[in-house]
Every structure is written in C-alpha cells, then in structure tokens.
Design a protein around this nucleic acid. Structure first.
Length: 419
DNA sequence: AAATACCCTTGTCA
DNA sequence: ATGACAAGGGTAT
C-alpha cells in the first residue's frame, strides 16, 4: 500500500456564496464525505482520495492517488486519448475538472438564488443564511444506493451504512493517517447471493434485500442503463451536453421517463427516485417530497388541508408540481436550499435556538473544567471580517460559542462515564 | 386510498 | 440507571 502519489495543495478561486462545502457536504446529498482534519473534508472520488479546505476566497484541494492506479476504477471519458495517460502529472488538471464537474460549478448560483427569491417570498426569507448550497453531480449508482438506504432513516446512520458498504465491498484506494479510504462498490460487487444476509448482519435491516435485489436488476439491465436515464444537458464527466427537452410543471419528458424506470427497482419509491433523478442523473426539476418537505409545504405553502391533507401519491405530485411552477427548471435545487434550512444539524443558525442552547448550557457549565481544542469550529468565523455583514458576524459568533459549549458538555459527559 | 409492518440507532422522558 | 417510546430525507403489500 504505502506507495502513494500525493499532489500538492492547489486552489480554485470561488466565493462562499457560490459554493459552501461546509453546508453542501453536510446537507444529506452525499453520505460519504468525512472530516479528515481541522476544517478538512475528504472522500474517494474517481479512483483517488480528494481532500478539500475552503476559505472566503478559495477552495483548496489535493488528491492522493494509489501508486498503481486501478484501471478498473478509472472510467476515462470517451474523448480521453491513450497517449496522454503517461504525461508527467496529468492528475492535477484532471482533478480540477473532476471538482468542477462534481460540484456542478458551471451555473451562477448567486443569480439562481436571486431568481428563486424573486419568484418566492418564503425562499427570499429563508435562503440568506444558507447560501452556497450546490446540487452535487454524484455518480448515479452511488446516489441510488445511498437513497435506498435513506428510507425511514437518519443521516448519521445512512452515512454509517454507506461507509460499511465501501469498506466491505469497495476497493481500497489509500489511507489518511490510519483511516482507510475505500471507493464506492460497483453494482456487480453486490450481486453475490450472500450479500443480503451479510448486509443484515451489518445492520442494514430490511434495506439489505432492497440493495441486493436492486444490484441484481441494475446488472441485468446492463452497463449504461442507469446513465442512459441522465439529463443530456448534464452528461457524465467528459462528455458533451445537449438539449434536455421542453420544461413543464410536470417536468421534462426525459425526467418523467427516468423517474418511472427507477420505480421498478426494489426499495425505490417516488421520493428515492426523485433523489436519484436530481442528484445522480442531473434532472434539476426533480423535487423529492419527504417528511421535511411535506412539513415545509404545510407550514409555508398552504398544503395539508382538504384534498391534500395527507401525503398520498396525488399530494406528492401536487407538491412537486407546485414547487416546479414556482421555481422553474431547477426547482429541485431551490428545494434543497429550503430542505437544508430545515435540517436540525443547521438549526443553530436560527438565532432563537442558539439562545435556548446557550442558556441550557450555561447552567451546567459551572462544573466544566475541561479545556478543549476547537476541533469542530465551522469555517464561517474565520472569514467573517472580509465577507460577511455585521449581523451575520454576530450570528457566526453565536454559532461558534454554542458549538464550543456543546462540545465541552459532550466531553464532560464522556469523562464522567469513564470514572 | 388507507393502514401496517419493516430493521435499527439514538435521543427523550418518565 | 433502565426501559418504554418516538423519530429518523419511505417502501412494499
């Protein structure tokens, strides 16, 4: 193993309103990113370990390649010329292209937020604290598996499950410190008849069967079936985009076809199908309506009465259509911003709750004697001077303080248990 | 269309 | 400390 090629840190100029990885990587789109250091995120991607840091002006990145790149893992674009493969260090440019693709950096996010805010007063009110949320262009198979795991589940456990899938069935790419990084397993890696029972053993519950059977079906449908459902405007890395068709409130024809085809898979209902369409297949109008979005629809968009009093299939479609008519072709993207704003993980950004938390903590903090390192401080406080308004700066401080106190509490609890 | 079971982990509350 | 209980980005029958 030990023989790895590590590129130096490089940087890409980008503002936090155009991309905020601290939000985007934690809002339940991808379940594989992990903290690999102070303000550093890492994940295996396209046959390498990609590490990221971000400040107010740059996204910093580096890649760690296996010494002998596993050709099976790298699926080069059709346009890649074999002769270029041996040039001195092609990985740098390759990694930049990978980042631009994966983080979907082409659209002007500031402009999109403006468009959505103009169309919708509720978006205008909620979005300012959740800027920089981008819809990732994830691998479709990975998205499919991740969201099959998501049913009746929470983000923490989904992430654990995906990690188990990688360590048990995915190829090892390398380590950061002692931590192994495996790539995501292919469908064919999950088609062995022992997989279902093994996954149950690993704590997947009833999703074990879904994953096994879906892997069988995807393999049977053949290589390229899943990517064949992509939005042609959003092709796989390296291919040329072309038109995706005409948009209506029901979505484009290609989207509806993809959605319908996905429903044939085990463990895939309308919500999971929409997640795959949006985050794995590039259909921006896919609006996954889950319990959170259903609550948002009731609270802020007058659903929950009369004909649409419960979340039936008909109500599901009505909610999704409503958001598509409101936000347009990238409705799923706008939906993700509001979804993120509603996640408990980020509730500390809402001032009222920070105050409650601080009070609660202060009572007990008298008996806290543990000094802690700032191991979980978000990036925002560091960059506040140049980019954020005073109001936001105060909130960022509140956030940091709340987290710090909470962190102390956690350590105290751990400690008293150890006695 | 509506009702239930399904796996399992974590947090809350007597 | 311990157990009941609900909820967590739903789906299948």
């Amino acid at each position: 193993m030990g023989n790895l090629r590590i590129t130096e840190w490089r940087k890409l100029p980008i503002s936090l309103t155009e991309l905020c990885i601290n939000t985007t990587l934690r809002c339940g789109q991808s379940f594989r990113w992990r903290k690999s250091g102070e303000d550093e995120w890492s994940c295996t991607l396209h046959g390498r370990i990609l590490s990221l840091r971000q400040d107010d002006k740059f996204l910093h990145y580096r890649a760690i390649f296996p010494s002998k790149p596993n050709r099976l893992l790298l699926t080069p674009p059709p346009s890649a010329t074999p002769s270029a493969a041996e040039s001195p260090s092609p990985e740098a440019d390759d990694t930049l292209a990978l980042i631009e693709h994966y983080f979907n950096l082409k659209p002007n996010l500031g402009q999109l937020y403006e468009d959505w805010a103009t169309a919708d007063a509720n978006f205008k009110k909620k979005a300012p604290k959740f800027t920089g949320v981008r819809i990732l262009k994830q691998d479709a198979w990975e998205a499919l598996v991740g969201f099959i795991c998501s049913s009746n589940n929470n983000i923490a456990r989904i992430s654990q499950m995906v990690e188990k899938l990688c360590t048990n069935y995915g190829p090892l790419i390398g380590h950061i410190g002692q931590t192994p990084y495996h790539d995501f397993p292919s469908a064919s890696a999950l088609t062995d008849s022992k997989v279902e029972q093994h996954l149950r053993q690993l704590g997947f519950g009833y999703r074990a069967k879904y994953l096994y059977q879906t892997a069988l079906m995807v393999e049977e449908k053949g290589e390229g079936w899943l990517d064949g459902l992509r939005n042609p405007e959003s092709p796989v890395l390296g291919a040329e985009p072309c038109s995706g068709g005409e948009f209506t409130d029901g979505g484009r024809e290609g989207y509806r076809t993809a959605h319908e085809e996905l429903l044939a898979l085990q463990g895939v209902g309308p919500k999971v199908a929409d997640c795959v369409c949006l985050m794995g297949l590039g259909w921006g109008e896919a609006v996954p309506v889950d319990t959170h979005v259903w609550q948002i629809a009731q609270r802020d968009y007058k659903f929950g009465k009369g004909k649409h009093s419960s979340l039936t299939k008909a109500t599901y479609d009505a909610v999704a259509n409503k958001f598509r008519s409101l936000w347009g072709k990238e409705a799923g993207w706008a939906h993700s911003v509001l979804f993120t704003a509603d996640l408990k993980t980020f509730s500390e950004r809402l001032v009222a709750k920070v105050e409650v938390k601080s009070e609660k903590v202060e009572v007990k903090s008298e008996e806290v004697e543990v000094k802690v390192e700032h191991d979980d401080v978000p990036l925002i406080p560091k960059i506040e001077e140049t980019t954020v308004s005073k109001e936001l700066k105060r909130e960022a401080d509140d956030e940091r303080i709340a987290r710090e106190l909470q962190s102390r509490l956690t350590k105290r609890v751990t400690r008293s248990r150890a006695r």
